[in-house]
């Protein structure tokens, strides 16, 4: 029980992270909610294996982004979805219309990146250092720097094209 309470506390503290990742990797509210639930479920399943060598948020980013990839694999073949708990679902609604519009523009730009770049830019936007990004993604710090430079250029080009 203590374990479960600890887990719920961590989820509540990091649920923004889950929302943003689920939102970036999916294209509909239904899919986003399914993915959010899947991430929470998978985080719970592997909570006991978390060895505290890295921070909870670093572990959560890694699991959430991996689950997002597995979700992409099976989403098109999915035949059953589970209704998400209403109360948990409630926090995922973006209440401000202007914010919703801005979020959609942001998503539009990030969607054009490939999955690797997408992962790196999410972590950059979350204010992660190059070392933390390297740890979560599993590439070298210098590689993060190079890729990040290229992503910035790609985004600039995309924005200019519009």
């Amino acid at each position: 029980m203590e374990n479960k309470n600890g887990f719920i506390k961590e989820i509540n503290e990091n649920q923004g992270l889950i929302f943003k990742i689920a939102s970036i990797y999916t294209n509909s509210i239904e899919d986003r909610n399914d993915l959010m639930q899947e991430i929470v479920y998978q985080l719970w399943k592997s909570f006991h294996t978390f060895d505290k060598r890295s921070s909870v948020s670093t572990w959560m980013y890694r699991v959430a982004m991996n689950v997002a990839i597995y979700y992409l694999k099976s989403a098109k073949k999915k035949v059953q979805t589970i209704p998400m708990e209403e109360q948990f679902l409630h926090f995922t609604e973006i209440e401000n219309k202007e914010m919703e519009e801005k979020w959609q523009v942001l998503k539009h730009h990030i969607d054009k990146l490939n999955l690797l770049d997408k992962g790196i830019i999410i972590l950059y936007l979350e204010n992660k250092s190059h070392e933390e990004i390297a740890q979560i993604i599993g590439i070298s710090v210098s590689n993060v720097g190079t890729k990040f430079y290229r992503i910035k250029e790609k985004l600039k080009q995309q924005i200019l094209k519009q």
């Binding site: 649920q15 923004g16 929470v40 995922t92 401000n96 801005k102 600039k156 924005i159």
Partner: peptide, 29 residues
């Protein structure tokens, strides 16, 4: 929208979702 605007929107969204903590034991079970 420029990269700085993307970052700003991301941060605004982070603040908005951070305020809400809805998961409790019953919902989780």
């Amino acid at each position: 929208m420029e990269l700085d605007d993307i970052k700003k929107t991301w941060d605004e969204m982070s603040i908005q979702v951070k305020e809400k903590q809805n998961l409790n034991l019953k919902i989780f079970d």
